Simulated assay, not measured.
Amino acid sequence: MHLSPPVEPMLARSVTTLPPSGPRPMLFEQKADGFRVLVFTGPEPYLQSRRGADLRPAFPEIARAAAALRVAAVVDAELVVWHDGRLDFTALQHRARLRGPRAERAAREQPAHLITFDLLEVSGAVLMDQPLHQRRRALESHFASLELAAPWALCPQTADAATARTWLDPAWGAAGVEGLMIKDSGSRYRPGERGWLKLRTRMTTEGIIGAVTGTAHAPRSLLLGRLDATGRLRLIARSTPLSRTAAIELGAVLRPAGADHPWWGREFSAGWGTKELLVFQPVVPEHIAEVDTDTALDLGRHRHPVRYLRLRDDMAPGDIRE
């Protein structure tokens, strides 16, 4: 039996804390900010996205690297682009839309890399029924025997929970490590199942309340901004739905904005990756909200909704700058 695309990747469900120790050791891996891919190496290479799409035309340098390996294998990996001292998800998205000469040029100027973390098949032997710790040893041997170097990289892994906690430091988040993957060392690879856990790095930050969904006196969620270098209010985040207590607190202080608000006439997406437009009410940008968020950013904008914590009456809009 040989694996052929498409193969459903094994998935993870989100958790908010490290789980307690179980009967078998847990393995922890860094969760990089990129695209999930399955890479089929050898004379007939294939670069499969999480949803089964062929990414070879957009990332020709990765397709060539996969074809150059003398051993046919299937590896599970995160496709990333490193730029300006961090993993750059925006650059990765841009590259995914390119084809032909533009893709080749981008491959030279912003090359992609593969952070590999699992080995599903090697030299005709399918490994998915082997426990994870054996697949990891096989992956490390694969790297060593082939002397793999860039664009190939081996995902950091540890069985030590204390070491794993250090990877949740926001400093790692600033470099593009979103958090942890948590895996049972004895588990087999189960395509399509959420058999792993993921724990995102959390931090707090502040934003100027520039608009709401609902009304100023009965807000349902917040649109937050920061002042750019010219003093313009720029959208940086949307909040999750407000609790009843928070809606009452904010509804008592927020004021509808006049025609001079910079967001009148603007169009904002209702969510990351959708073309649906958001219906919102601008408010006077005079209040600061402290929020809980993860570290996933696109050009300074939080990719996932943030969670409102409290008002910061000790701060002024001029304090909240990019």
Rank of each mutant, 00 (worst) to 15 (best):
P25I: 12
T201R: 04
K31G: 01
R303D: 01
L199Q: 03
A229F: 00
A58T: 08
A270Q: 13
R108E: 14
R220G: 06
F40E: 01
R165T: 10
V122M: 07
A153Q: 15
H287P: 01
S185G: 07
F143L: 09
E206T: 14
P43L: 12
G22Y: 04
E267L: 11
F117P: 04
V37H: 03
E322V: 13
V122I: 15
P23S: 15
M181T: 13
F59T: 08
D298F: 03
P9T: 06
L38V: 10
P256L: 02
F143V: 06
T215N: 07
V291Q: 02
R165H: 03
P5E: 12
A138Q: 14
V39I: 15
R301H: 04
M203H: 14
A67V: 01
L299D: 15
G34W: 02
A175L: 15
L250M: 11
F40S: 05
A159G: 15
T230Y: 03
R97P: 00
E44G: 12
H142G: 00
R135S: 06
A229G: 10
T205W: 08
P256C: 04
P241D: 04
F59D: 05
P156C: 10
R13L: 07
V80M: 05
V75A: 10
S243G: 15
E206A: 12
H142E: 00
L55A: 05
V7M: 11
D260L: 05
Q157H: 13
K198H: 14
P9M: 09
Q48R: 13
L254W: 02
R24C: 05
P45Y: 08
P19K: 14
K198T: 12
I320Q: 06
L277I: 11
L250G: 05
F89K: 04
A103H: 04
R24E: 12
L148T: 02
S221G: 09
P219D: 07
A216R: 11
V7Y: 04
P151L: 08
L197S: 12
I115W: 11
I208K: 08
V291N: 03
F117H: 13
